[in-house]
Design a protein around this nucleic acid. Structure first.
Lengths: 360, 360
DNA sequence: AGAGAAAATGTAAGCGCTTACATTCATCAC
DNA sequence: GTGATGAATGTAAGCGCTTACATTTTCTCT
């Protein structure tokens, strides 16, 4: 009986996964050869390769990820932290992001922060511990510690869904502020003087903040007093949008146009308008932001800002891959600004001639 | 100078992450103590603990996940593979799933299979290699190899969004077939005789298949010839729903009720109906399935089947945690069936008295 | 005070993989 | 034939952590 050279005689457990060593033994080669066979097939001769591959197949071998990461110091894993998966815009962008990564042999780890910077910091830590080679983050609002961490560990990362012209960070997105300003200009041009906005909570959410600022920008530019702008903040949901809308229109000085921070809120507003017997846009105008599917199926169709979600995801992935490969390391100059354009549909119209809008 | 006992003198690289050993040294204890301090604080004395924690903080130490998994043979990571993140129903369930896992200190890894069993098999492999302790899967349709793999590696897993009474697998969900059958009964009870369905592609998707079967079941039960049922398959999207609807109503024998396999398809149908000048439900009835937000904001409101998405996610997480902890290992008996109920809104009405529906 | 138990800590052996370096062996120019 | 060359493979040292086991310290009780 030939001397067995088993360091670790396999236990009887049938569920134990086969290891590199098992494969090596089976194929009659060293573990190094098996490893090479799997990671760099060209360096192994034709015959051994088939031998090894056969053994792999037979044993149903799959490399242990942790061990590989430990030894190779590289995981081929990227992470993404989004505020919530329930928001279609992130879901869509993320899907595109993932598809692009897939093409590069990279696995994606996702977690959601529920719009909390503290939670996000925790998630960043977790993702780094898991060996994420690079990270996709949403927006610029986060704790300083988060940034420090990223810096210290030299984790390539890009910030999506928002660009901040003055911040030296690689980001990919569009200018929420300018987009909203442009929309507001249109609203103003249609004669509306009494505006209101329904926004997502602005704390910890620079996109929401920028959008509100955009409205103010436009008003100021037209010499209107921005202090008269009523802003209601409420979390992302149809019913919240509906509630906010109702609050807005049942006050003494009802606005003639309601600008919503996103389509979901706008959809809620639209629904409630109908329930209240208000015609859109004859009696009141409503606008959205994002241009998700919902915007085209509500009636009237929602005039909104179209955001290239999928494009952002794909682009972010490419950028991140390049950064990891050090092709152009962390250069903020590689940031890209995409266009967000107004998508005209029917929910925005001229200000009503007469009606409830008082000009006290 | 006291003898340094540094196995691996730290290189000058400032970006290298501190290791357990660094912390141990700093705190003047052994690595074992640090490890215990982090994983089982009770086993360490108060004073050492604070010392260690201080060192951890100072160094910004975060454990290396791969190494930990390798040594502990446990990752505290669960995986989930969903068909696509773009479908709101999965996104929502997944969010709930994740929240529940979070409460148990478990991290979630997500990937999407694009409705392809082959791709899903690949993802399962990847997730297992990454050390997922347990898996959440959608539906029962997958390759035999996938099941074998799960079996062989003894990976606890639950199947969600679908229950198959006759299959011995732990699953959590509702009975798609019966739910659709119930809905169809209602449609039939309203006098409709000429039905059609717009379904998601049935290959590799047991939910879609079951829903179609449910329609047939009801028809058979009423002694109607199911061969006359027109079924159009088309991928999940609003515009596809619209197209399918148009095809359906422009044929010679137009149906009086169109049952859609999901709300998104139904929303498309509804939109197109409006564009075509067809009144819903006066001229034609349309139903959906899932009861996502979209169903309540379209007009008329969509009569659909309400599915408890979040509940499913939460429950699945609890089940999986229990399974991993061996509380009741893999017992199919622990499957749970949730209720899916009809959500009445306005898109389903009585069959029109007169009209285009021929009874050739 | 001293034995024995319990608590706290240290020692060191892996976990499954990659990879630098060493070894073997066939090939080839001269 | 010989040494140089390079391709193919093997050897073994870790990667950063957990944990069984050994050792030391502290406490408890008579």
């Amino acid at each position: 009986m030939p001397e067995q050279k088993l360091k670790r005689p396999r236990t009887g457990r049938p569920d134990a996964s086969p290891t590199l060593e098992d494969v090596a033994q089976r194929a009659g080669v060293s573990t190094a050869t098996v490893s090479r066979c799997l990671n760099d097939p060209a360096r192994v001769s034709e015959v051994t390769r088939t031998q090894v591959l056969k053994a792999v197949d037979l044993l149903g071998y799959a490399p242990n990820f942790g061990a590989r990461a430990l030894a190779a110091k590289r995981t081929d894993t990227f992470g993404a932290i989004i505020p919530t998966m329930e928001n279609a815009i992130f879901a869509r962008g993320l899907q595109a992001f993932q598809e692009e990564l897939e093409r590069n042999g990279i696995t994606l780890l996702v977690s959601s922060s529920s719009y909390s910077p503290e939670l996000e910091e925790k998630q960043i830590r977790a993702l780094i511990a898991r060996g994420a080679d690079a990270l996709l983050l949403i927006g610029h609002d986060r704790t300083q510690q988060s940034y420090d961490l990223l810096e210290r560990k030299r984790i390539p990362h890009v910030i999506a869904w928002s660009i901040a012209p003055d911040v030296p960070r690689t980001s990919i997105g569009f200018d929420n502020r300018t987009a909203m300003k442009t929309l507001t200009h249109e609203v103003l041009a249609l004669g509306h003087r009494h505006l209101a906005v329904i926004s997502a909570p602005r704390a910890g959410n620079d996109r929401a903040r920028d959008r509100c600022r955009g409205v103010v920008d436009a008003m100021v530019q037209h010499n209107f007093d921005p202090d008269r702008l009523r802003i209601i903040e409420t979390p992302y949901s149809i019913s919240n949008g509906a509630e906010a809308f109702q609050t807005l229109v049942t006050t003494a000085s009802r606005p003639t146009a309601v600008l919503c921070g996103n389509d979901v809120l706008a959809a809620g507003a639209l629904t409630r308008a109908r329930e209240l017997g208000l015609r859109v846009p004859e009696d009141i105008s409503i606008t959205g932001f994002d241009d998700i599917e919902i915007a085209q199926i509500v009636s009237p169709g929602l005039t909104t800002v179209h955001v290239p979600h999928r494009q952002m995801g794909t682009h972010a992935a490419k950028l991140l891959v390049a950064m990891r490969n050090n092709e152009y390391a962390d250069d903020p100059a590689s940031s890209v600004e995409l266009d967000a354009t107004i998508k005209w549909r029917d929910s925005l119209g001229p200000v009503p001639e007469t009606g409830a809008n008082t000009t006290d």
